[in-house]
């Protein structure tokens, strides 16, 4: 195509570079008494708008009574490559579960 092709109509006319909004992680509490559960992520220019975008994206079907947003880069995560060292170790350590132990005779209400 030649450069005489008309540009697609765009509300972003002008030559200012479009910066990407930062990423936020969204946590939604479904009802009182439950904890906030990670629902997904979104882009927003700041925290206030992130809460509003979260409301539009993650609570439009009546899913929540409370929303938290956290800057994604404020979250420190476990290293997926260190899965073995991090999460394999409890395997086989059944004594970490209360059910491993036999109840002593005469103990009620355990």
């Amino acid at each position: 195509m030649t450069d005489t092709t008309p540009a697609a109509p765009s509300p972003q006319q002008g030559d200012a570079p479009q910066e990407l909004w930062p990423l936020w992680e969204v946590f939604v509490r479904a009802s009182r008494g439950l904890s906030h559960v990670h629902a997904g992520s979104l882009h927003a220019p700041d925290a206030t708008m992130a809460v509003r975008n979260a409301r539009d994206l993650y609570t439009r079907r009546n899913e929540g009574v409370s929303v938290w947003v956290v800057p994604a880069d404020a979250i420190t995560t476990s290293d997926p490559d260190a899965k073995g060292a991090f999460f394999e170790s409890p395997k086989g350590k059944t004594y970490r579960h209360a059910t491993y132990y036999t109840k002593s005779e005469g103990v009620k209400h355990l």
């Binding site: 939604v28 479904a30 009802s31 439950l34 559960v37 629902a39 993650y58 079907r61 009546n62 899913e63 929540g64």
Partner: peptide, 12 residues
């Protein structure tokens, strides 16, 4: 019936 997860749909 309420709702018990972030994905359960309930119409107000």
């Amino acid at each position: 019936g309420g709702f018990d997860s972030a994905t359960r749909i309930s119409v107000g």
